[in-house]
Design a protein around this nucleic acid. Structure first.
Lengths: 161, 161
DNA sequence: GCCTAGTGCCACAGTCCTGACGCGTTTGGC
DNA sequence: GCCAAACGCGTCAGGACTGTGGCACTAGGC
């Protein structure tokens, strides 16, 4: 019962879920409530993905692959965009923490020589999520492991011959 | 007077353009008419970008850089997503021609050794537009030339050290 | 079978958006 | 200054969506 499109009507969401619109309103008091629940679920999944990847402790390449694999799974389960969630301050704070954690990891990856240090500010941090979303969307049949292989290879080595 | 968001209200679009809503309706008979005009302008710009890049004739690396540079400019001028345009059959046909032209170019780039031939089907064709959109969005102050440098480098060599 | 929880369906009021009308005002060319 | 084109503003009717009330029906446990 997912709404990848925040602009979709409650009717459309209900129909997609095979339930009546009234049923949706029994579960969620408003559209805002529904979206908040979806975003909260995604945020929680992202937090688990980050913790599981041990971004601060595991070897950089290992942590990167595990994180990418985890997030591809999250993207497939919760195909919504967290940057569009600007609801309550608590959720925003949690999202900011997650973002900062990934930023710190990318800095670590740069410091330890995995990523180039000549990139424009924020390029890596913007590129990685795009690649993970692309893999989730473009390769729906590919398991998360091989999909992560593809993303990591594309990220680190590009697709040039 | 652009609407990056197809769901934006005509009021919002008019306000962003600094005109009255009634003025928008004097220029476009309907929301559909307005969107069609925006998409048509983008499509035409994309077609020019492709023609200017000489995807079939110029050396592959030259054509690629020129194409990327051109499309980044287009993305900045017309930040709309052509895949969401499903209007009249004629526009769809033109869009399909443009897509096919870029696909053929990517195959040429692979055949001539610029791109790896071990990629999943469609990965390069999906990745390149994402990178160009990302550069247009993430690096608004970077000129199209250097932005194209960044995209081409990221595409071919990744961001690994 | 009884009972409770959950469901689907219908309808309503309110809000926002769309497309359009009408009119006074503004702008620019001659 | 005159005139036509364009503008802004207020308003209207209709449609889509939201949130909600009410009721009959369904499903599952006992």
């Amino acid at each position: 019962m997912l709404a990848a499109d925040p602009g979709a009507s409650i009717s459309a969401i209900a129909a997609a879920a095979g339930v009546d619109r009234r049923t949706v309103y029994r579960r969620f008091t408003s559209r805002e409530d529904l979206l908040a629940a979806v975003y909260a679920a995604r945020l929680e999944a992202v937090e688990h993905a980050i913790a599981d990847a041990r971004l601060r402790e595991a070897p950089v390449a290992v942590a990167l692959h595990r994180y990418v694999e985890n997030i591809i799974e999250v993207n497939r389960t919760w195909p919504v965009d967290l940057t569009r969630m600007l609801a309550d301050p608590e959720s925003r704070a949690r999202r900011d923490v997650a973002v900062a954690e990934v930023d710190a990891f990318l800095r670590r990856a740069t410091d330890e020589g995995l990523l180039r240090d000549s990139l424009p500010a924020g390029w890596a941090a913007a590129l990685l999520p795009e690649l993970m979303h692309l893999a989730a969307r473009q390769e729906p049949g590919l398991a998360a492991g091989p999909a992560a292989d593809l993303v990591v290879a594309t990220l680190l080595k590009g697709i040039g011959a």
